[in-house]
């Protein structure tokens, strides 16, 4: 191969990589801009009143005008979501470890964890609202939907430990505690993080569903409550504004949890491997 050839090839590959990266960033932005323009045109051409479909500009104006109300609502929803997620993480991992240590506990409790998961949370929420104070009920809903993916994934991770490594640990006389801390939990970490990523989105959904179920009875006013309230008042622009904030929250959580996963696994796990060459 000639010298020119060897030098040109990586340069071309670099160019291609750069173009690919720009494409990945610009394509969704372009799609968004097109969508918003189309939305705006539909409103203008049909001269739709704001209570049928507000224009994107009006939604944006409402977002700023109602910022004080929406910001407080966002903080409430965020707090519930995070609390639900942390409880789900603690409960899911704790229960998975318990299941892993005792088959009897696993057999007696796992079916009910599944029942909790497959029963639609929308149907449970009204019942919880009867028996629990509203804040606690909303938190319980967020927890119920979020804990199962953590439990299921962590259980899978704890059970898929390399058998030979397990044999090696017992050869060196490791205690159950050592096996759990030094072998099973690190081996389960990628699965656990996968569960956490799903749980993040679900916790937000649980919080929103519970707030909507709480409806007008709601004293603590999260974003979902604001949406319901705005719906009753035909304040459609504010509904859209609150919805945008909810989506943004979901996206932010997904990005944050993906970053956390990458940070924890980048040195050793295949999923964090950057393809070279």
């Amino acid at each position: 191969m000639s010298r020119a050839g060897t030098r040109a090839a990586p340069a071309r590959a670099d160019d291609q990589l750069r173009r690919e990266r720009w494409l990945r960033v610009l394509s969704p932005i372009a799609a968004l801009v097109l969508g918003v323009v189309a939305w705006d045109l539909v409103v203008r051409v049909n001269v739709l009143p704001p209570y049928v479909l507000p224009s994107p500009l009006l939604v944006l104006q409402t977002l700023f005008a109602d910022w004080a109300i929406l910001w407080r609502a966002l903080l409430t929803t965020l707090a519930i979501t995070f609390e639900g997620l942390i409880l789900a993480l603690a409960g899911g991992i704790g229960l998975a470890v318990l299941f892993n240590q005792s088959r009897a506990v696993e057999y007696s409790l796992y079916p009910y964890a599944v029942v909790l998961q497959v029963t639609p949370v929308v149907a449970i929420a009204p019942l919880l609202l009867i028996y629990l104070p509203q804040q606690v009920a909303v938190l319980a809903c967020a927890w119920i939907v979020a804990f199962f993916p953590v439990l299921a994934n962590t259980t899978l991770g704890l059970n898929s430990v390399d058998r030979n490594l397990l044999a090696l640990f017992s050869l060196y006389g490791a205690s159950r505690w050592r096996i759990l801390v030094n072998l099973k939990l690190p081996a389960a970490l990628p699965h656990m993080l996968g569960g956490l990523k799903i749980a993040g989105g679900l916790s937000l959904i649980g919080a929103v569903v519970a707030e909507i179920a709480a409806g007008s009875a709601g004293a603590g006013s999260g974003l979902a409550y604001r949406i319901v309230e705005s719906g009753y008042r035909l304040n459609i622009p504010r509904m859209f504004a609150a919805l945008i904030l909810l989506s943004a929250t979901g996206i932010a959580m997904f990005i944050a949890l993906s970053a956390l996963t990458h940070l924890l696994l980048r040195r050793w796990h295949e999923s964090a491997l950057v393809e070279e060459g």
Binding site: D162, N164, L165, P186, A187, L189, W268
Partner: peptide
Amino acid sequence: EPTLMPWA
């Protein structure tokens, strides 16, 4: 197999 802990 080498049976190493991939995280260590």
